[in-house]
């Protein structure tokens, strides 16, 4: 699906968006893959993102690049700005300044939340959020990639293919038995999985996963690790997690955030022995 990255270094600072107008002249609506241009090997570019809440800087000139198809772990103490970073990427919070691009063409700061979601950035919230009054099946159905405009939704029925896709995802998230249960009746861990399942239904290119194993048993968290590792490659996955055991088991590249900026970045072993990191985080 993606061209694997040939770059090992970060792109030179001062990201230049593609200025080609080619998609403007297409007779049809450009497809998602055409819009999200990842020829450079990177899918997310955040540069100098600053977000302040009443003078307090939750993000302070944060610069971060995510490679296409990579699995990136983001760690950092409470209040480091991890969730805020996801809020910026998904359009929930607008930064005071900085640039945020999705591929080389799409300026995230000009898109709304539903637009960003439809273009393929899926998100799991820190606090598991599912539709408690709907069944597991309906939760997945609502999340499924489809024409999500009002009138189209009114007359919408599931096709055979879509049913199969729901069954497939139910299998992946291990909720086959609970398909008709109300989401509100699931255990905490099951809700986490359902939310991951909803992410999969959207068929995203990027998955932003905020604390996926909070409240999970050791076994559950192991299967989550397995799931996320298989997803990487076809998808770009960004995981925020406090559980170091979990991070160690999945991480290839780790970014440490502290006070709204990147403190260190590199393979887990390297990070583990970084003096600055030990001081602010691991040493806690």
């Amino acid at each position: 699906m993606f061209r694997r990255s040939v770059h090992k270094d970060k792109p030179a600072r001062g990201f230049q968006p593609l200025d080609d107008q080619s998609s403007r002249f297409l007779a049809r609506k450009p497809s998602r893959d055409e819009l999200v241009n990842t020829d450079s090997g990177y899918i997310l570019y955040l540069e100098d993102i600053t977000v302040s809440f009443d003078g307090f800087k939750a993000l302070n000139e944060l610069t971060l690049y995510i490679e296409t198809g990579e699995l990136r772990c983001i760690i950092g103490p409470n209040g480091a700005g991890k969730t805020t970073m996801m809020d910026v990427i998904t359009g929930k919070t607008r930064p005071d300044f900085g640039t945020a691009f999705y591929g080389q063409r799409l300026d995230l700061l000009r898109l709304t939340e539903p637009e960003i979601a439809s273009l393929g950035i899926g998100r799991k919230f820190q606090k598991p959020t599912v539709f408690e009054n709907h069944t597991v099946h309906d939760n997945l159905e609502l999340a499924m990639e489809a024409d999500k405009r009002v009138w189209a939704t009114l007359a919408r029925r599931l096709s055979g293919e879509e049913r199969d896709r729901i069954a497939e995802v139910l299998d992946i998230i291990g909720l086959k038995e609970e398909v008709l249960a109300l989401a509100g009746s699931l255990s905490h861990g099951q809700k986490q999985w359902l939310e991951i399942g909803m992410l999969l239904m959207q068929n995203p290119l990027v998955l932003l996963v905020d604390e996926p194993v909070a409240g999970m048993t050791k076994q559950e968290s192991e299967s989550t690790a397995e799931l996320l590792t298989t997803l990487a490659g076809d998808h770009s996955v960004v995981v925020v997690e406090h559980d170091m055991e979990f991070v160690r088991s999945i991480a290839r590249r780790v970014t440490v955030l502290h006070e709204g900026r990147v403190l260190a970045e590199g393979p887990f072993e390297e990070i583990q022995h970084d003096a600055k990191v030990i001081e602010v985080y691991l040493g806690e």
Binding site: T90, K92, E113, P114, A117, S118, G122, R123, F125, T129, V130, F131, E132, N133, H134, D138, E141, L142, A143, E145, K148, V150, T153, L154, A155, R156, R157, M198, Q202
Partner: peptide
């Protein structure tokens, strides 16, 4: 209808609904 289920979803968790598009 599916629209009705989206509407209840909005009632219960509007952010979640927004972030699935």
């Amino acid at each position: 209808s599916k629209l009705g289920r989206v509407v209840t979803a909005v009632r219960d968790a509007d952010d979640r609904t927004r972030f699935i598009g």
